[in-house]
Design a protein around this nucleic acid. Structure first.
Lengths: 223, 223
DNA sequence: AGCATTTCTAAATTAATTCTTAAGAAAACC
DNA sequence: GGTTTTCTTAAGAATTAATTTAGAAATGCT
């Protein structure tokens, strides 16, 4: 469990790191918003402890960026005790909020509450189905031990299916998840990308069928 | 989204109900721990707002019981502002904690934060009747443990019957529900699809009858 | 800017479902 | 018992949905 601690005050950051270590997780300090962004690109994080007053970038901005890119837990730690900020933070995607000065034990408990929840619904770093191996960390996909190069769309499509291997996805489902947009004018976009994905998978292993079409309903992995 | 509000103070309970309604969810008051237990048996809840000081049963006990039986979200609302209690609550399975006196907007935001999380990981809906199992998420149907492949129309038909297992459906009913259209020229379309559905079910289990014809009226599941 | 890659659109092709028709069977009515 | 109505079922026609191809538009990269 990797926890990124975004807090510019060195002493407080150290303290938070110690708390995190003590309960058995892996802390990494970041002392500015920009440093946090760099850390996000470097590896994937399970939980963010986020100070709101940051050099380089406001905590609010950073919060929005994290939420956009990741499903990690976010705990805000801040001296701002104003009501609207608190409410706004929760609305905008933070999972919890702690005000300074904080109590060490409370911080530990809240971190564990988040981790407990995350663990439950954890998406593993490597997704597999039949002989497909999709590595979330490296974004590499192999089929039948052959590396398959997918475009971004194809990758997201495949990942969606592998994440819920039994679920039937309607084209609307797929569009909402992969395109991250509500509107959905033409089902054909989805069709085309499904076709392309299938072609690439088939090229790597012509003897196996991975995705089945359920007429009038959508697509599902073929078990 | 059904939210059970467990709080003995009538005014506070009312206030919480109003907050919940306002953000578009379905509140149900319970004024004691025992009433909450009864409500839990009566139907399934998505989220609990839980006061700690309760007649009939302590909030701590109730919390443990809820967590044992359900995956619902739990938000503690309490006047006890002692540190250890707060920490304990989070450790014992609550998802969030609000202290009285609370701010209406904050309560609303915290409820929405919980709901957002719950929605994402919803457990799949499975409908059953006799040895028919219909999985809403995978759209797979098994009869007598044999997978049955249904067309989209047949699936919707079967789901309609399983959703209201005792209801008699007229052909107009069925047409309206499955075809999602008002007009209904020929009852025979319904007949034909009912026939096809029956044939497929019978193939998987020839010894059981699932749908009975009520002459001159319509169809109903055969109990 | 210019090249390469990806993504989207449009249209032709193919496939599966859905509907219509019609003939025969079962139930209700007289 | 015969007649009428309602339902069942089978087969083929019509319709709708999905696949695929090719090219245009957009995006990304150097």
């Amino acid at each position: 469990m990797n926890i990124l601690i975004v807090e510019d005050d060195i002493d407080i950051n150290n303290l938070l790191c110690r708390i995190v270590s003590k309960i058995g997780y892996n802390p990494q300090p970041a002392y500015s918003g920009t440093e946090a962004i760099l850390q996000m690109e470097r590896k994937s994080w399970d939980l963010f402890l986020l100070d709101l007053m940051l050099p380089g970038m406001s905590g609010e901005e950073l919060l929005a960026m994290i939420r956009k890119k990741s499903d990690a837990g976010i705990i805000i730690i801040s001296a701002k005790d104003e009501r609207m900020t608190k409410v706004d933070m929760l609305r905008s995607g933070a999972d919890d909020y702690i005000t300074k000065p904080f109590d060490n034990e409370e911080v530990a408990a809240r971190i564990e509450a988040q981790i407990r929840r995350l663990k439950k619904y954890r998406t593993p770093q490597v997704l597999t189905f039949k002989d497909i191996i999709l590595n979330e960390e490296t974004k590499q996909v192999t089929v039948n031990n052959i590396p398959v190069s997918l475009t971004a769309r194809e990758y997201k499509l495949l990942r969606l299916f592998l994440t819920y291997p039994k679920k039937l996805f309607t084209k609307e489902n797929i569009f909402a998840a992969v395109w991250e947009s509500e509107y959905f004018d033409s089902a054909n976009v989805v069709n085309v990308h499904m076709s392309n994905l299938r072609t690439k998978l088939a090229k790597a292993n012509p003897d196996e069928e991975y995705i089945e079409t359920i007429w009038g309903m959508g697509y599902r992995l073929k078990t």
